[in-house]
């Protein structure tokens, strides 16, 4: 499967990206917004506010995420809403400077681990694959970091990786 990595929010402290499966109209993050905007509008607004504060004020501090949501060292973590913590948004965090947002969903109160919910598990698996794909692309030198560590760069006009 091929995905295009696109930038969606630029900040002084953090840049946010997402992934778009080649051939599909919407990115993973757009799908997350559309899937949850009717039932979880307030939670989405809270996640939006947290993303913007990280981009413009604080950076993507590890403490703002639920970490270790993927494999050891793959950077996969989850953003959640305040208070109720109804939503999980899986992402790959590269230090405080870059976050690649994936998809996610509602975390039912009845489950303890994401593996107990198919939707969450599928979204989490996809983000783990994206993390692995980016790492492989870095290793192959297809992708690299900009000098300030805030941008993903490659030789092509679009960043398309195999996951």
């Amino acid at each position: 499967m091929k995905v295009e990595i696109v930038k969606i929010l630029q900040g002084d402290y953090t840049n946010f990206y997402t992934a778009k499966i080649v051939g599909e109209d919407l990115s993973l993050f757009e799908n997350f917004i559309i899937e949850n905007k009717n039932k979880h509008q307030k939670e989405l607004e809270n996640i939006r506010n947290r993303i913007k504060v990280m981009a413009h004020n604080t950076g993507a501090r590890e403490t703002f995420f639920k970490i270790k949501e993927g494999l050891p060292g793959d950077g996969v973590c989850a953003l959640y809403d305040e208070e109720e913590k109804n939503l999980r948004l899986y992402c790959v965090r590269y230090g405080k400077l870059v976050v690649v947002l994936g998809g996610g969903g509602e975390k039912p109160k009845t489950i303890r681990a994401l593996q107990e919910n198919k939707k969450l598990k599928d979204e989490n698996d996809l983000v783990k694959r994206i993390s692995k794909g980016i790492s492989k692309a870095m290793k192959n030198r297809y992708l690299q970091w900009s000098a300030d560590g805030m941008e993903l760069e490659c030789d092509d006009d679009k960043i398309i990786i195999e996951i």
């Binding site: 919407l26 757009e30 989405l44 941008e151 760069e153």
Partner: peptide
């Protein structure tokens, strides 16, 4: 080296 293009859409703009 080129950087990832900025992706804009109505969904993201509203969000």
């Amino acid at each position: 080296k080129k950087q990832a293009k900025v992706y804009k859409s109505k969904v993201l703009e509203d969000f």
